[in-house]
Write a protein that binds this DNA or RNA. Structure first.
Lengths: 206, 206
DNA sequence: CTCGAAAATGAACATTGTTCAAGAAGAATC
DNA sequence: GATTCTTCTTGAACAATGTTCATTTTCGAG
């Protein structure tokens, strides 16, 4: 039989179940947090055996990492959807989009940043690269706003700015230790971005 | 017998072992990360039974939280040791002290911020209060630098600034996803603080 | 229809947090 | 010092959960 094309019914079913497993795991993490995710629960909810989860993802970390991978992708998609016409508005848009995503998917984002691998296995390169890519999205607008600065300097500036935004948001959305009241977070975050840009010599009217 | 004073030998031994258990747990978290901490390892290292750990801390979370509690205390002590004579220098000192502590005790700080309680048990109030207190330490110097601003506004500003610093540091020290190269972190962090202060209308020479 | 490869299964195992009945140790009383 | 009472300690047993793998089932190829 032709090996190249023609996905067999078997393959279709396999992919279908893989998708189902991921969806169930994601929903569980999103609603009850990463710590409550159990292999048996996922298997039962998907109507298959424990072994099948292992066949599909190798181990439990494999399932978690797959969900995390899709979380970064969703985040990146959302960040890239921010309009790029006005660089200043874009920076605010990125911060606000990040806040929006973090509000709607707090547990998924926590899973991405807080999950530690078993033993000392290395963190997957591809996820790392995707996160770095997301955090570099402030680079382009900042370059437009700071055309005279050393580009490598601006690269660092942008990642620092995004890290700062990340810190404000992740602590702000933590129910415990509310550094900034959630209801004010959106407004305050915008204020923070403005302040920092002002410090870089960029004014709103410019 | 007098109940008030006079700590019996029993009490002394109990306290001594409690201290030992905490020390062992802390060392384990610091070197191998929270995820590698096991009740049996701690008990064996302390030369006592598993049950004794439970007698002392109630459950495993109890031990972790005790270590975390002492971590905040150590952090706060270090932050409060920053000279307060010059508010501007104090702000830089606080950021730098936080970076220093985070560098030396990365895993302990991660344990503090990333540990999730079993089920949905509430996060201990006292630890929460201590973290909030630490994060409010930028308030005093900022008030001195911004005497004309609404004090409640400055309170928020200070927590946001600390949250931002926290974000930059915690992502910067993560071996994976290096948003900012660790060897530049110190210098860049100072630059960040300066930039943000400039945005608030505060200049170095002022 | 038969055969063989691939997948699915779930019982069994390993690890680890937790409990608790029984015993040991220490304090109080005489 | 003996007795009794309280408290602490112990570790075997249990429960929850990630992991393995021999067996069975499925499904496409010839």
């Amino acid at each position: 039989m032709n090996i190249v094309q023609e996905e067999s019914r078997r393959d279709r079913k396999k992919l279908q179940r893989r998708t189902l497993l991921i969806e169930i795991a994601r929903r569980s993490i999103a609603t009850k947090g990463l710590r409550s995710l159990k292999v048996r629960d996922v298997a039962e909810a998907a109507g298959c055996s424990i072994g099948s989860v292992y066949n599909e993802f190798g181990d439990f970390d494999g399932l978690i990492l797959t969900v995390n991978r899709e979380t970064v992708q969703a985040l990146t998609t959302r960040l890239k959807a921010v309009p790029t016409d006005d660089p200043l508005r874009q920076l605010h848009g990125l911060a606000d989009a990040y806040l929006g995503f973090a509000s709607e998917h707090a547990n998924l984002l926590r899973s991405l940043f807080e999950h530690r691998m078993e033993d000392d296995r290395p963190f997957p390169e591809d996820i790392l690269a995707m996160v770095m890519e997301a955090f570099a999205l402030m680079h382009a607008p900042l370059v437009r706003l700071l055309p005279d600065r050393d580009p490598s300097d601006v690269a660092l500036l942008s990642r620092m700015m995004f890290s700062a935004v990340h810190g404000i948001i992740s602590l702000g959305l933590e129910e415990r230790m509310v550094a900034v009241p959630p209801e004010q977070l959106r407004e305050r975050l915008a204020q923070f971005v403005d302040t920092h840009l002002a410090g870089l010599g960029i004014t709103r009217s410019a």
